[in-house]
Design a protein around this nucleic acid. Structure first.
Lengths: 125, 125
DNA sequence: CTGGCACCTGGAGTGGACTCCAGGTCAAGA
DNA sequence: TCTTGACCTGGAGTCCACTCCAGGTGCCAG
């Protein structure tokens, strides 16, 4: 079981040191270990959790809902059904997000084509 | 050429009245007409522009860049090449966004599957 | 022994994008 | 005539997710 310093975790997860501390403060990251000097020492489990957080965050989940998820995880195995529900509903949201993005992207591409057509029209006499 | 009240435009574009006024204030929406009483009256052109804005916004373009685009539009036809560049680079961004979303979604789906597997394990003796 | 570095704390500040508010105008309907 | 509703203005407030800061600790290299 490896142990990581804040710097290493920031490097690995892409979160800044401040964000790591912020997540701990608000309870998104519980019980981070400390060394004798009071400095944080992260476990593989912490890093795994942070990678999960990153997935959720990058797919647009608000912090409030990640907190709800974190709370379920903290409560133990009997919340697994609820966690599945939460993640499945988020997964649906991601699906809708992608569909919307594709649709709007189509409109943007049509606009690009429109501009290209305009440019293709001879300008002078 | 139809004319729309603020309420109708809010209804049609999904922007709130406040957002419409805000966009006008910051210059994202220029020269909205007024009636004798000083109330806004939007043209089809305004509504079309707002729909464009909505596409860009919903695909994650920040307001600062929409302002840059608006500025190019205001400057006239000789900026069409630049507009194409801006939109194409945004389109690439949307593509990357979708790819990232798909990738993270995969991780979330694997997590869901993991939870389902855990639940499938008989709990008692 | 002196830097320098990585870290610590509590609290304040930031940036983006709205959203709300108080107080006022105007026109149409009961 | 009165009220309601849609709109107006300038400015303040909100929310989210960080991000920065001042002042301090602990430890190792030169």
């Amino acid at each position: 079981m490896a142990i990581y310093t804040p710097g290493q975790v920031a490097e690995e997860t892409g979160f800044s040191l401040d964000t790591l501390r912020y997540y701990e403060r608000i309870g998104l990251l519980g019980n981070v270990g400390r060394n004798a000097a009071g400095q944080r020492r992260f476990t593989d489990g912490d890093v795994g959790w942070l990678n999960m957080i990153r997935c959720l965050r990058d797919t647009g989940m608000p912090i409030a809902e990640m907190l709800r998820f974190a709370e379920l995880v903290r409560q133990g195995d009997h919340t697994i059904r609820e966690r599945i529900e939460l993640l499945e509903s988020h997964d649906d949201g991601v699906e809708r997000q992608i569909a919307q993005l594709r649709q709007k992207q189509g409109a943007i591409q049509r606009k690009i084509q429109f501009y290209k057509d305009v440019m293709a029209i001879p300008q002078g006499v």
